[in-house]
Design a protein around this nucleic acid. Structure first.
Lengths: 237, 237
DNA sequence: TAGTGGTCTAGACCACTTT
DNA sequence: AAGTGGTCTAGACCACTAG
């Protein structure tokens, strides 16, 4: 197997192996030849085969274990990549005018469930911020966020009058790990009033928990009008 | 820089570079040293540096171009990985009993918007399937799907009485590329009746277009009760 | 303990894009 | 034209783990 001008060798090997998996020549759980054998078969170096197999493993097509070898992964897991852009980009990309409005910022003891999620002592005061993101004359996002003041003491000096807490956190907290939940909910009377929407409007709700250095930094509930916001993804497999 | 017992070299390099980005030593848009220079700096081979930089690029931390070099990426784009599992796994994982119910399968000319999305001639007949996925005694997913009979002629022989079209496509169409839209909608009277839900219930709607060999294979609208279904993601950056 | 994958090297050639 | 990243090789040593 020689280097084709159009496609790298490891890519070609990936495609071939993938094709064998989906065509059924390699059933789920089937053992693949070792890297050395495949290198001989494709007449290339072991590293080239290794890269192909490593990427297939990252995509979830195969599973690898030392000594045990490489096996076709159990099917059914389709990984799809979704890219969320920062809200201002999202809005301007659609040609809308963006406006930020701070509703409230206060120090207070978070309610029990939030305290648990933030992993803070019950009764301690932390920062609660509520704000709106407007696109033209409609609310595009309602952000309801708690920030752990133990982990990010600098928030005390922030008013968030001009800059939303999500942007501020992005620029000021390093390397946070994120977890998301995405769900559809019906607008409660409170939320409906806040977002200037009719009651029971369908909303897309994204709950985001950020962690830094194994400590909970922030817990945010982001709600969007269902008709204004869509997540888009371009899948791989 | 020598190989540490606990962590691969390329990982250590990744972490160091990442740390420089988030600490502000490397500002957004800043040019990083070339692979050769970094290899000298970390006293390792160029390939090791290359792997570190390649993975940072995949994670969106840096952007690379030949001759132009490696630069710190523009911030604010948070990639989040969502894994969609096949519906039967999803339901059984929650301990519910799964049941599949076919509502209707017919050959017909798709309505204009669908015809456009499927990229088929107006008036040609294609397969339309509507079915339900039950979890215990509740509808977990309503699947409304059109399949391009030109691309997948084998569908003609399928009744889909026992097996849902999404599963069948997974097993019979190779390597399809997927695009998804995710939105929140309010249950219309028709959908509400089909899904046995009150009108205006908030629904999570996933629109999935699959492509094979640059031809549109299928267009599906999957709707879930908002309270029963959540997408979960564990992010990286 | 033997065989697998994981990592690393030193060197090489090529493709691409800015200068 | 020159310098960057992208790929590949042949060989090596190591870590892990199934038999």
């Amino acid at each position: 197997m020689t280097q084709n001008a159009t496609q790298p060798l490891y890519q070609q090997i990936k495609s071939r192996l993938k094709a064998q998996v989906v065509s059924g020549k390699l059933l789920q759980g089937a053992l693949l030849p070792s890297e050395t054998e495949l290198a001989g078969h494709y007449d290339c170096s072991r590293l080239t085969v290794h890269r192909a197999l490593r990427e297939l493993a990252e995509e979830g097509v195969v599973e690898r274990r030392r000594r045990a070898g490489t096996r076709v992964a159990m099917r059914g897991n389709t990984g799809l990549m979704i890219r969320l852009s920062r809200i201002t980009d999202e809005i301007s990309r659609r040609g809308f005018a963006y406006r930020y409005e701070l509703l409230e910022t206060r120090f207070a003891a978070p309610p029990d469930p939030i305290a648990k999620l933030l992993d803070v002592r019950n009764g301690d005061a932390h920062l609660h911020v509520r704000c709106l993101h407007w696109a033209n004359n409609r609310v595009f996002q309602f952000e309801d966020r708690w920030i752990n003041a133990d982990v990010v003491p600098a928030v005390s000096a922030q008013s968030f009058e001009k800059m939303s807490p999500s942007l501020w956190l992005l620029d000021n907290v390093p390397l946070s790990e994120l977890e998301h939940d995405i769900a559809a909910i019906s607008a409660s009377p409170t939320i409906a009033a806040t977002m200037r929407l009719p009651e029971n409007t369908a909303l897309l709700e994204i709950t985001r928990r950020s962690t830094w250095n194994k400590r909970r930094v922030s817990h945010a509930r982001l709600t969007y009008p269902g008709d204004l916001f869509r997540l888009r993804s371009e899948g791989s497999n």
